[in-house]
């Protein structure tokens, strides 16, 4: 499980200091897919970057009993001047995995074909995220952090990913952030809402959806 204890994060903007996360504490159980809903600018990406240790929080700590992926999203942590093969090797090296295995798995799973040896800068957004997800699947993480991105690629490929993630569900969990309720409804077992710096976890997706809809109409 992943445990957040008293996480706070503020940003200094030209409009003054903005409190993005206000003393957030929560435990994410293992083996469940959790969706975190939030309106645009609620701090979803910040939250997931803090969970993935890509960005330090101002206060509080994240503890975890397994390996967490980097936050997967459109941008990914990849070097656009390098090819997919080289990026895959880089990821394998920093996670201490076998570069050949990671390379082969990614090549097979991403179905990029000859594009695998082309620099990422000439990829479309869909191809990029296909690559990012394939590498992360190759690495066998215990927790996958997903930032808005499952919905790219064509229908057949989306299905392939969903199946792959479902297979892992037995020993891996997904934490997904999105502003889109459909994405969460389709991919998650539980949902939480991030609003005005605080995070509220709901046992049933249905209850979370109702509250999220109220939130959306209120702000519109």
């Amino acid at each position: 499980m992943i445990k957040l204890s008293n996480i706070s994060k503020r940003y200094r903007t030209s409009a003054g200091v903005r409190l993005v996360l206000d003393d957030v504490s929560m435990t994410f159980p293992s083996g469940k897919s959790i969706g975190i809903l939030g309106l645009n600018g609620a701090g979803k990406s910040t939250l997931i970057r803090i969970i993935g240790d890509a960005e330090p929080a101002d206060a509080g700590r994240v503890s975890c009993d397994g390996r967490i992926s980097w936050p997967l999203g459109y941008a990914g942590g990849f070097q656009s001047s390098l090819t997919a093969r080289e990026n895959a090797r880089f990821v394998a090296r920093i996670y201490g995995e076998d570069p050949h295995y990671i390379e082969d798995f990614t090549y097979e799973f991403s179905e990029l074909g000859s594009y695998f040896d082309v620099p990422l800068r000439s990829y479309s957004a869909g191809m990029r995220s296909r690559f990012a997800f394939s590498v992360s699947l190759a690495c066998n993480f215990d927790y996958y952090l997903v930032d808005e991105a499952l919905e790219t690629g064509d229908a057949r490929y989306k299905e392939k990913f969903r199946r792959a993630f479902e297979e892992r569900r037995a020993n891996a969990s997904v934490i997904l952030v999105s502003h889109n309720e459909q994405t969460v409804r389709r991919n998650c077992d539980m949902a939480a809402i991030l609003h005005e710096g605080s995070l509220q976890l709901y046992d049933s997706i249905k209850e979370a959806m109702q509250n999220y809809q109220i939130l959306q109409t209120r702000t519109h």
């Binding site: 967490i68 941008a75 990914g76 942590g77 920093i94």
Partner: peptide, 9 residues
């Protein structure tokens, strides 16, 4: 900057 998204980098 993109590489700094990996926690161990």
């Amino acid at each position: 900057r993109t590489l700094l998204g990996f926690p161990q980098v």
